Simulated assay, not measured.
Amino acid sequence: MKKIIILTITGLIFYSCQVRKATVSTFNSAEEPKWTLETLNARANEHLDSSHWDKKLFQQDIATYEKYTEVFQSYPLNKSPFPVAEYDYAVSSIPFTIEYETQVVKGVRIGEYVNPDSDSIVDRLTLMVLSNDKESDESTLVDSRNFPYLTAEGYFVVTNNQIDWVFSASPDGYSFVVVNMKLFDLRFGETIIIYPQKDKSFLYDQIKDSPNNYANFELYRESIINNERVKQQLQSDGNIQ
């Protein structure tokens, strides 16, 4: 069963194939802060100062963790509660499936809203895994608590292995995803495709493309499946069946 988990101030929300926001609206600013080394350092110091903490949010997170401990511990990194300074930020996670001939690729888009009141999303990572099973298990947790950094993690279960991943994006433009200990610097491409192999290894592609570059996701999907290298990889005899 596919499940996406987003942590909000009201607890956990389980959903499939829908976009949800995770946001805490407690800090308002007339202008979006311009994140520099100095402002990021100031933000880090706010997290250390208990007078800046959102204590109500912290207590809600403790209660949520107590209720869903087993779920949080199932992720590559256990999501324990921790205090943070007040913030105003909304994040998104969108699962999808791509079918090409007899192949099935499952994926997730991780992004952030332009602002918490907006419907516009900027994708920061598009991760895909060849699963060849529409019903294979997958799960994603995208977290707003590290604002202004975007963080997420999850896993894809395939026939002979499990693909774990952890993602982080910095407001200064640097972002990465680690997939089963393979690090991808996303400055060199925000689309990552994983091809699990019969021998439990995996091959991969990193493509300098993103859904942000297209009017809709269908155009992006067509671009990916028409990529000659991707088509060649999908047809490899070494792939899982």
Rank of each mutant, 00 (worst) to 15 (best):
residue 145 R to Y: 03
residue 81 P to K: 00
residue 114 V to Y: 03
residue 154 G to E: 06
residue 233 Q to F: 14
residue 238 G to R: 08
residue 231 K to T: 04
residue 114 V to G: 01
residue 60 Q to H: 04
residue 51 S to F: 00
residue 21 K to V: 03
residue 35 W to V: 10
residue 29 S to P: 02
residue 114 V to S: 08
residue 103 Q to R: 15
residue 73 Q to H: 03
residue 81 P to G: 06
residue 48 L to I: 09
residue 205 D to R: 13
residue 226 N to H: 15
residue 208 K to D: 15
residue 95 P to H: 02
residue 168 S to C: 14
residue 77 L to W: 06
residue 205 D to E: 14
residue 228 E to F: 08
residue 14 F to P: 04
residue 109 R to S: 11
residue 232 Q to D: 12
residue 110 I to C: 07
residue 241 Q to W: 01
residue 189 G to L: 12
residue 20 R to I: 12
residue 167 F to E: 11
residue 137 D to R: 12
residue 94 I to N: 07
residue 153 E to P: 00
residue 183 L to N: 07
residue 28 N to M: 09
residue 151 T to W: 03
residue 27 F to H: 10
residue 128 M to E: 10
residue 29 S to E: 05
residue 93 S to K: 00
residue 162 Q to D: 02
residue 84 V to H: 01
residue 221 R to A: 15
residue 223 S to D: 10
residue 175 S to V: 05
residue 34 K to L: 13
residue 49 D to N: 15
residue 228 E to R: 05
residue 108 V to L: 12
residue 48 L to P: 09
residue 219 L to N: 03
residue 189 G to Y: 04
residue 16 S to Y: 02
residue 160 N to C: 08
residue 110 I to Y: 06
residue 220 Y to V: 00
residue 240 I to D: 05
residue 100 Y to G: 02
residue 195 Y to V: 07
residue 18 Q to W: 02
residue 62 I to Y: 01
residue 95 P to S: 11
residue 221 R to Y: 14
residue 112 E to F: 08
residue 118 S to N: 09
residue 184 F to Y: 11
residue 63 A to W: 00
residue 63 A to C: 05
residue 129 V to K: 06
residue 217 F to Q: 12
residue 207 I to K: 05
residue 175 S to A: 14
residue 16 S to G: 04
residue 52 H to P: 02
residue 22 A to S: 13
